[in-house]
């Protein structure tokens, strides 16, 4: 099905043993304030990692560095061959319809691009909304277009910067499920930046916590296969521990 057209065999990911992301001693300072202070990180192909941290901890700065959007970082940084970003808000071009937004900047054979765009829109459940202007779509639909725009590029690294935080609770749940499905099908390496511990535990295989520009915690919780349940005792237990690590009292959270 569409998975096959989006990720032709042999092109999908880099070779299995080579990490998609390799970061050593990554540093980023804005004037006096140091936002990233010696970050080391390796990411295997297909690995789903969540980056947790309080606001201002440097997690978004790390993601922007991985996306190649930050030219002021120091240290060693090797990121995906084809990284794709989904931002907190959809950031669609308001003057292009959904199709054109998804196909933005794709090069090559016109007909093939059209087919890929159709596949991507179908995968995010918007096959019939391709001709809609962004303003005609709901918030959740817009974010799904943004997801299609990232996916259609056949990324080996998918960078998600709190992509669900602007959505209402119900839309968020279905968007999270969609990301999980897409990841299961295409297996890009994923970096999900979030401040939602539960979301991180539901979706990711590996969690890192950033504080003051450093990775202070790195774990691969044994939570079993997806889809995971929010009330799974293992998940609840990890959630409590991680919240404590982030300095949040669970009872208050």
């Amino acid at each position: 099905m569409s998975a096959a057209t989006l990720f032709p065999a042999g092109v999908s990911t880099s070779s299995r043993d080579e990490p998609v992301v390799r970061v050593r001693e990554l540093r980023r300072a804005f004037g006096e304030s140091v936002v990233l202070d010696g970050v080391d990180l390796d990411l295997a192909p297909g690995e789903f990692i969540a980056v947790l941290g309080r606001s201002g901890s440097g997690k978004t700065t790390l993601l922007r560095a991985l996306a190649g959007l930050d030219h002021g970082v120091e240290g060693e940084l090797r990121s995906g061959r084809e990284p794709a970003v989904v931002f907190q808000d959809p950031r669609l071009l308001p003057w292009r319809d959904a199709r054109a937004n998804v196909g933005l900047g794709l090069r090559g054979d016109r007909a093939e691009i059209e087919a890929r765009v159709s596949d991507a829109l179908r995968e995010v459940g918007l096959a019939d909304r391709g001709e809609a202007w962004p303003r005609e779509l709901s918030g959740g639909q817009r974010q799904r277009v943004a997801l299609a725009r990232a996916l259609v590029r056949e990324p080996d690294l998918l960078l998600l910067d709190e992509p669900f935080s602007a959505l209402d609770a119900l839309t968020r749940v279905s968007a999270q499920r969609l990301v999980q499905e897409l990841w299961t099908r295409h297996r890009p390496a994923v970096v999900l930046v979030t401040h939602d511990v539960e979301e991180a535990l539901l979706l990711a295989d590996r969690l890192i916590v950033i504080d003051d520009g450093r990775i202070i915690h790195d774990e691969r919780p044994a939570l079993g296969e997806r889809p995971r349940r929010r009330d799974d005792p293992r998940l609840v237990e990890r959630r409590r521990a991680l919240l404590a690590l982030l300095g949040v009292d669970d009872a208050a959270a």
């Binding site: 996306a67 190649g68 959007l69 990284p83 794709a84 970003v85 931002f87 808000d89 950031r91 071009l93 292009r96 933005l104 900047g105 725009r149 590029r153």
Partner: peptide
């Protein structure tokens, strides 16, 4: 933010202006 999207999608200078 839209210019940043253009960057993240690796748009060429021409595509940036056009789109």
């Amino acid at each position: 933010e839209l210019l940043e999207v253009a960057d993240s999608l690796r748009l060429s200078r021409r595509e940036r202006w056009r789109h």
